[in-house]
Amino acid sequence: MKIYNKKTFWYGIGFIVLGTLQLMISIWKGFDLKGTVMMILCLLIGGSGLLRSFSREMSREDKIAELDERNRLVEWRAKSRALGIAELVCFVCMLLSIFGMQAMEAFFGGMLVAFGLIFTTMLIIECITLLYYNKKP
């Protein structure tokens, strides 16, 4: 068997490993609904990924869809929106931590520092990427 799409192949292997680990944990600790559903989904996604990576036609369709301009634009817009939402959530958590410091200073102080670092990192990365892509022709 020849692997036509290595990226899909490794995603499939990863999901099968996750499903198998979930199966072993379920056997060891007992089956529950959430774990069983997650295990089945991981095994199905992994199996379909492996099948798609071994099929020439399906791998060709995946590569064409990956290179399609509209799909790439939708992905870029979704990532941009996700970054904006993550920045907003981080800023709100910082504000809540500032107000919460009056109740429990040590706990909310640590949260304020953590959210502040994450928020600052996101802003710096966003500025660097804006500068990079504005320079690029």
Rank of each mutant, 00 (worst) to 15 (best):
D62H: 11
D62M: 13
W10Q: 05
F115R: 06
G12S: 08
S59V: 12
L130E: 09
G35V: 08
R60V: 08
F31P: 04
L50Y: 02
A78K: 09
T8D: 04
G84V: 02
G19S: 13
G49S: 11
V37S: 11
L21P: 04
T8S: 09
K135M: 14
I40F: 03
R52S: 13
V17L: 12
F107C: 03
C93E: 01
V92S: 04
A106V: 09
K6Y: 13
V113S: 07
R81E: 12
I118A: 10
K7G: 06
I128Q: 08
M58E: 05
G84H: 08
Y133D: 12
G30E: 08
M122R: 09
G49W: 02
E69G: 07
F108C: 01
M94V: 13
L83M: 02
M94Q: 10
C42N: 15
L123W: 00
G14S: 15
Q22P: 00
Q102A: 06
D62Q: 14
L117G: 15
A114F: 14
C127E: 08
L130H: 01
R72G: 01
E57C: 07
R56C: 07
F54M: 09
M94C: 14
S80P: 01
E57T: 10
A65R: 07
R60D: 11
C127Q: 14
N5R: 06
G30S: 02
G116A: 09
